[in-house]
Structures are given as C-alpha cells and as structure tokens.
Nucleic acid binder design. Structure first.
Lengths: 339, 339
DNA sequence: TTGTACGCGTTATCAG
DNA sequence: CTGATAACGCGTACAA
C-alpha cells in the first residue's frame, strides 16, 4: 500500500509510454478512444493516484485554491466555508484555508506564501486589503474573488452585498416601527462592521434621530455575553434608548437575555434587531428581527466563479451583489405611539 | 515577483553549492557557522522561499498535516479547529482539512487521498473508523491522533474524553435535583451521541428511572429549531417528562425557548441540561446547565502531540483524557419535592 | 495519434 | 564540512 504505483507503472501495464498516460489524464481528447479506455481501466485496476508534488513541479502550477478569511470560527465564515466546500468537494481542487485574524499585515504575509505556491485561484475576504496586498493580487497570475462585500474597483471578481445598505434598511425598519432612540451595538470593529455603522448613522440622520451617544462599540470580538454587557453599558448612559440595532446576532441574543433579566419588555420597551439571521433568531422568544444574508450562497458562487475562470469558462457577471433580506419579527414589532 | 528565486540562485549569490544551502535549511548543524550565517543573510535578502512541490518530490515527504473531521460548521469542531490552528500557525506545517460528513466511507476515501500524499501527520475524529480505515491508519508511516473521544485500543495517540461518563454525570445531576421523568433529546445520532445516550440510560437505570419512551431522537442535524420541535414531540407523547437532557446546547436552547412559548416554567416544571457548554449557556435566561468540554484544548493538545512525534520528541502520554465539567446552572436547579 | 527526452527545484548519497 | 550528481514523478515540446 505504501509502494505507490506511478505513472510509469500504469504505462508499462498498458503497454504505452508514460506520455500517453499523462495525456489521458490531462487532455483525454488527444488520445484515441481505444487506448484511452484501456489506460483508464489499468488506472482503475492499479488504483493509480497522481503524485501532486511531481505534478506541481512539472507543470509549474497547482490545484490548490487558497482561501483567506479573518476567522475560522465565526459563524458567518463557517457558513461561507460550507458553501465553498460543498462545490469544491467534487472538483479536482484542493482547498487551503488561512486565517488573517482580521489583520491586513497577516493577510499580506499569507498572500506571499500562497502566491509563491502558484495557486490555481484565490478567495480573499473584503475589499480593504493593504496597498501592498492589492498590488500582489493585481499582478497574480491566477483568478481571484473577493467575498463578503461589494464595491467598485474589484481586483478581479467579487461576490457579496452592501453592508451600508443592509444596515440602513434595518435601521429604517426600526424607525418605521416607531422607535426613536435607536442605539447601535458593535463588536470587533472590522471594516464591514464600520460600514454597517455608516448605514445605521445615515438612516438615523435622514430621520433626524441621530445621536452619537447611542453608539456603543468595542474592539472585543462578539459573543452573546458581550451583548449582555454592551446593553448594560448602554443603559448606564441613561439615554432613553428604546431600540438597539446589533452588529450581529450574537449580540442581539445577549441583548434579549439581558432585557429579560432586567424585566425590560421586548419589543414594547426595547426593540431589538440583529444581523445575519442565524438560524436561532426565528425561534427565539420573542423571535428576533434580523437581516438575512446569503452566506452559503456567497461561498458557492465565489468558488464556482473561480473554477469557471480557472478552467477558462466565461464568467458572465464578475461582480455579484447577493443582496439581503430584512426579516422583521416580534422583537421589533411595535406600532407607532398613539398621537 | 513572479520570477521565483530558487535554491540555486541563493547558492550562486552566496558562492556555495546548492547542497550547502539545502543543508542550512534542513540540518543547519552540519554547516559551519560562518557559511551558515552568510547563506541565511542571502536567503533573507533575496526573499527565498522553498518550493514545496520540489521539496516534497525530492524528500518523499510533505509538511502537510491532514485533519479529518465530520463537519466544518459544527460549533464543536470549530472550537477544536481553532485550537489546532492556534498552535499550527507558527509551525512549519500546513494544515489540510477534509470533511467526512459523518460517513465512514467518505473517511476511508479521504484517508487514501491523504495517505497517498505522505502527510507528516494525521488527525482523525473519533474511534469508530471502518476496519479498512483502521488498517490504512495502522500501517501509515506517519503519526496519528484520534480526537474527541477516549477508548482503549488507540491507533496511535488519542486525546478526548468519555462521552458515556460525561452524559452519565449530567443525567445523575438531574436525578439529584429531584427530577424523575428525565427525557433524552438527540439529533444526528453519530457514535458520540450514541455513547452519550448510553451514559444517560445507564444513569437512569441505576436510579430505577429509565423509560425508553422518554428517548426522542432524529437523524437530522441539530439546530435550535430542532430543539423546539423535539420538545414538541416529547410533550405530545404525554409522558409527564419533567426534565430533558439534550444531546447538545443547540437543542437545549431550543427547548428553553419552546418552554417559554408554552409557558412551561424552567426549571420548576421542566429541567434542562445541554452538552458542550457553549458560551451562551451561561448568559441565557435562565442560565442553562451544561457539560463543559475542553474543545479548544483538545485541538491544541492533539496537534502538539502530533508535532512532537513528527519531530521525534518523546510524547509522555500518548492517550489523554481531558475530562469534562458539569456546569450546574439555573435551568436544572430544583429542590427535591417535599416529602 | 503516440513516443522520446528533457526539465521542474529540491533532497540525498557519496566522494573529497 | 562541502560539492558533484543522481534521483523524485510527472508534464510537455518536439519528433516520429
């Protein structure tokens, strides 16, 4: 089992040269059907498996698709990865993940490592790469997809959605429900969170309701516990907040629990809206309003586009906006106050 | 930037042979300090980066550590991966994940693929590999760690905990709190879940409280929503259940929400206990009793053991039981009924 | 359509 | 301690 069978073994067994076997693997159409069948049979029989190292060395390219994401454990990225995985699974490509830990510098280093391996393609997160990273990517010889966001000036391809617009929609929804003192709770202020804050601010400015003091943020990474704490901080400020738009669903759930503990009625006294629409939002009690994002689809689309380009198939739309959907639920359901 | 600098370039620039450069990289102690320093300087200056394919081809081994887990998206494995990642990050090893989707057959196939690459090491999940997989692993030429469980008869090394004992402890806790009709809610009945069911059953048998009808399971994968549904199913059976031990925390949270919706008081009318102790359990309202498992540490330990063995450092304990901790909280806090 | 022959960048063996 | 030199297994011009 450890005595690997090589290309030449297959060739010998099939009575052809190794070049022909190689062709059957790479460009079968160049080999006559008869020979092809015979070789394929031998490959099957011997359980031949190409040595990836040799292949990479000889062809100066690999079947590795590199994936750069800020966090492996964040629910959001887990869903994206699942999407990526589901289509890569039955493709000839190997996935290689790396974790930038939300650092542009790490991203740059990882990029150098990846690029030095001549990957078949690359998926990177967001649109805020450092200038050096952008330069590296621009002159890379493989296709590249940026995910999670949309923007003008894509490096190559792009699939995501607008964080500004989605947050704007969520905030506008709260305004429409009659809330007037709408706070923002934000954790790990990465670029996408910042843009959501922008959308929030813009919506409130449009409604003449913006109050900077209602913004509570922290660099810590988001957890349910943190949601509880941030709500506590907000309440301490005594600003008469009557709703919170949360950076993400973890925080929103924490807010819900903390409201329950403090006997603050949701949605009557405190409206709550999350972001991402994790599965649990719909079944919480009360159910929690959130902004649905299409994370798994984002993963699927991105890797599909990438593979299409790797294999020289035309990609109709190189920039895809997947949009979002406001899921209005009980936690924000309040009629406007009576006149 | 695309014109890669090779080993020979370094050699030329340093005025030595490429063999010497290679030695500096692999076995620096065999090179005289003076030459070594000079070469290292040149490497730095030229930004030399070894070609992994060439290296793998020439040395017939790779720096790839393969990780086989059943699911990429499950919270539990995400934590384990984080642990693995955190120590692999600054090691020379590349991680390569693969997803067995809880299938022994897929695992077997993936194993063949991995093994054919001569990985430096392998991490596999659980102890229920197929006989064929076990055989493959046994004769593999690299170290192997099984994670998530402990058991006798390790393939090589092992780090996990006892699912039977931990579930037993949780169930005994509920019994100790005075609950008498304790149900089991289980999703995705994988081997570890089954063993937890065993622990549950055993504890109730010991207390003379076992009733098979109180066991509600499904092959579907676990979600909070599913927790709501399973509780519904349980209640339909009208068995006077007064507590539920859940397969995992997602289900437990769903049960809590569903109890709230149905106005079933927790913990008075219904005790709830989860498994894994996800972060949110402690801040739920009421806080949810759970069994804490050391997932991140499991990842860290496993990869550390693996790397130690790869690098021929002695591993003191090749089988590690990380244990568990019962986190008793409000959701199971009921005094025994008055006499 | 098929075979020959060389090269990919490194490691390893063996002299020196 | 250092330097030739031959693999490692496959891809690919080029020739046939």
């Amino acid at each position: 089992m450890d005595a690997r069978v090589r290309l030449s073994d297959v060739a010998k067994a099939a009575g052809v040269s190794s070049a022909t076997v190689s062709r059957v693997l790479r460009r079968p159409e160049l080999v006559s059907p008869g020979v092809r069948e015979r070789i394929l049979a031998v490959i099957e029989e011997l359980g031949y498996f190409a040595n990836p190292a040799a292949r990479a060395l000889a062809s100066a390219r690999t079947n590795v698709i590199g994936i750069l994401i800020p966090s492996l454990t964040n629910n959001v990225f887990a869903d994206v990865l699942r999407g990526i995985y589901s289509v890569a699974q039955d493709s000839p490509y190997d996935l290689q993940f790396a974790n930038t830990r939300y650092s542009n510098l790490e991203e740059e280093n990882l990029l150098r490592v990846f690029l030095s391996q001549k990957p078949a393609g690359l998926i990177v997160t967001g649109i805020d790469q450092s200038p050096a990273s952008r330069a590296l990517l621009k002159q890379a010889s493989c296709p590249i997809v940026q995910i999670m966001e949309t923007g003008d000036d894509p490096i190559d391809m792009m699939v995501g959605f607008s964080h500004v617009r989605s947050a704007h929609a969520a905030t506008a929804h709260l305004v429409g429900q009659g809330y007037r003192r709408i706070a923002f709770l934000g954790a790990r202020m990465d670029p996408r969170t910042r843009r959501r804050l922008q959308g929030y601010s813009r919506a409130l400015e449009e409604a003449g309701l913006f109050d900077e003091r209602l913004i509570v943020t922290t660099p810590r990474s988001s957890t349910v516990t943190l949601g509880c704490e941030l709500l506590g901080l907000l309440l301490e400020k005594e600003l008469n907040a009557d709703a919170v738009f949360c950076n993400n669903d973890d925080l929103a759930l924490g807010v819900l629990f903390e409201c329950q503990r403090r006997r603050i009625a949701t949605p009557a006294e405190m409206g709550v809206c999350g972001f991402n629409d994790l599965e649990m939002m719909a079944v919480a009690n009360p159910s929690i309003t959130s902004v649905r994002t299409f994370r798994q689809e984002m993963g699927e689309r991105s890797i599909r586009m990438l593979i299409d380009r790797i294999e020289d198939r035309p990609v109709k739309a190189p920039v895809v906006d997947l949009g979002f959907e406001l899921m209005a639920r009980q936690s924000s359901q309040r009629r406007p106050p009576p006149l």
